[in-house]
Design a protein around this nucleic acid. Structure first.
Lengths: 198, 198
DNA sequence: GTCTATAATTCGATAGAC
DNA sequence: GTCTATCGAATTATAGAC
């Protein structure tokens, strides 16, 4: 009989690695990039600080690994035009309500205010994931602006609800928010955009 | 003939104080609370680091002084109901476009992700300034939620345009943004809110 | 009021034993 | 793979000369 081995429960190294990443996300989220320290992250993960360096090379390497994110945006083109706004809002809220503290997009949101790498990553997520989905609906010229408008509303929601915990926003139910925000996103997806002045 | 004195050009202490505050806002905004240092702030203000301690007592004291903000929100009740959304969006954008880097609300927005004092201050601005204006329009029960919805849209805009510099948002003109966002804010001000589920 | 000097921490990163 | 020990740099804050 061989060791429990590679397949069953992950190799110990992989478990350690994930433990570090989880602790790192929590700390980067609460304290920002420079506020979090390798020492405190290691303490939270209950391992030695030198292990962090071994696995990720540097603090920057750890951060880059921590902010990898796939939004897994649903296909909107296959949906009735009138339901797309609601569907998109619902997708974000379902994802966030599951484990907001653990969601990488919220971490990116918090980190981007003081970290260039996080800003760059956020731009990539925006253009490669959100804008691409919007562009699939036609109006390729306006896709970037439509996606931008949607981003202002959805990132603003994440910021007010999960970062600030604003009274009127954090106390609302997810269903209320879906009902209130869906018409906005629906309009950004389908209504004519303002003309650019001469 | 007395000294040029207290009234004309401010006392030297006051000028120094303002210079420190201006430098501090710029650095806190770019680097976050822990990323900015008293030394670098003092260098930018071209004074000695110990002066900062003398004027503000500590880094926390300096920060608290730097994030004091008055939105100077216009009176909405005196306006035609249909123009309120546009008027409010226009107010924010005019203020931000003037000197976005220097605006204290954007500084608060950036700081609140990693600083408890900034979050607390943001809550106060929200309830004492925005929510109060919204409550003046009637529907006192829904005022907090309406104000919250407006906050998600306007703070989301500030975040995407001034913090992230997102392609579709940062490249738009202020007039385009006013046109695109006004209907949203107008709806949050006046449309019926979603019912709270049983 | 303004500066120098420095105390007291804390940080990221490295070297090397086991 | 995991740990101890430590370096060098940067930080906040204080004490005191002028």
């Amino acid at each position: 009989m061989t060791a429990p081995s590679e397949e069953m429960r992950l190799r110990k190294g992989e478990r350690t690695r994930r433990g570090i990443l989880r602790a790192a996300r929590a700390q980067f989220q609460q304290l920002g990039y420079s506020g979090a320290s390798i020492r405190s992250i290691a303490a939270a993960a209950e391992i030695d600080p030198s292990m962090v360096m071994r696995y990720f090379g540097s603090k920057e390497g750890l951060f880059a690994a921590a902010v990898d994110v796939d939004l897994r945006l649903p296909d909107l083109a296959g949906r009735p035009a009138g339901e797309r706004g609601r569907h998109l809002v619902q997708h974000f809220l379902t994802r966030w309500e599951g484990d907001p503290v653990d969601d990488v997009l919220v971490l990116l949101l918090r980190s981007a205010v003081s970290n260039e790498a996080a800003r760059t990553r956020m731009h990539a997520v925006f253009t490669e994931q959100l804008a691409v989905r919007v562009a699939e609906l036609g109006d390729p010229d306006g896709a970037l602006r439509r996606a931008g408008l949607i981003a202002t509303q959805m990132l603003g929601l994440a910021y007010c609800r999960y970062v600030l915990g604003l009274p009127g926003v954090a106390t609302a139910t997810a269903d209320q928010l879906v009902a209130d925000l869906s018409p906005t996103v629906q309009r950004y997806l389908s209504d004519p955009l303002a003309e650019c002045p001469a």
